[in-house]
Amino acid sequence: MEHKREVAAEPENQATDETEAASLPSVMVAGEIPGYDWETAREAVRNLGYEVLGRADESTVLLILGEGGERNGTKLRDAAERGIPCMDVRTPGRFKAAVCAGELVGSDPLPEPAKVDRSGLSERERNRLIRAWARDHGYTLPDKGRIPMNARHAYEQSNRDVSQGKAAAA
């Protein structure tokens, strides 16, 4: 008895599609784009003929900087090291205008990466949390300037991880 084996035909244009995808310019997106959710913003970029990458490679031609993008030090360093231009879209409407014009152009300066602690918060965000916590717990603080050490220390003590407390006691 003869066994016949069916072989699926490979699409003729498969190699062309892979070559085409590899030759597309790519962009990195750091942060949230005002007025767009994550997927909609990336789809808009793809519709303009770009791939969206998490890390820069030889095809990367632009960094799109959204809200909070300065916290992504890796993407900012990649862009700086490779000389990739930045398009700062933190101003509402800037990204939409570029999409409508069909052109993503980067000529904005790259910000310095925000200093973040282990929690992923920038110093400014952390200070806001400390101020809010301290006020909720009866501390009187100035709106600007240094946070008094007693308030900062009390915040640190109240938000210490249990495992840290055991290590400190040992």
Rank of each mutant, 00 (worst) to 15 (best):
P11R: 14
H3W: 08
V99A: 03
E81C: 05
E123G: 07
P11V: 06
R55C: 06
A80E: 13
V89G: 15
E112H: 12
M1F: 05
L62W: 09
G83R: 04
E18W: 14
A21P: 04
A8T: 11
L121N: 13
C86D: 01
N72Q: 12
L141K: 07
L104N: 09
N72P: 01
L62E: 09
G31C: 08
L62V: 11
R135V: 10
L24N: 09
A22W: 01
A15S: 10
N47Q: 09
A114Y: 02
N47E: 14
L121Y: 11
V52Y: 07
V52L: 06
A15V: 04
V27W: 07
R131P: 13
G68W: 03
R146T: 05
V105I: 13
S59Q: 15
P113K: 05
R135C: 02
M28G: 09
R131I: 09
S23G: 15
W133I: 06
C100A: 14
D57A: 02
K166P: 00
Q164C: 14
T140D: 13
V27G: 04
C100F: 03
E10P: 06
R55L: 09
G73Y: 00
E51V: 05
A101N: 12
V52R: 04
T140S: 14
E103F: 01
Y36C: 11
C100N: 10
A154S: 13
G145W: 08
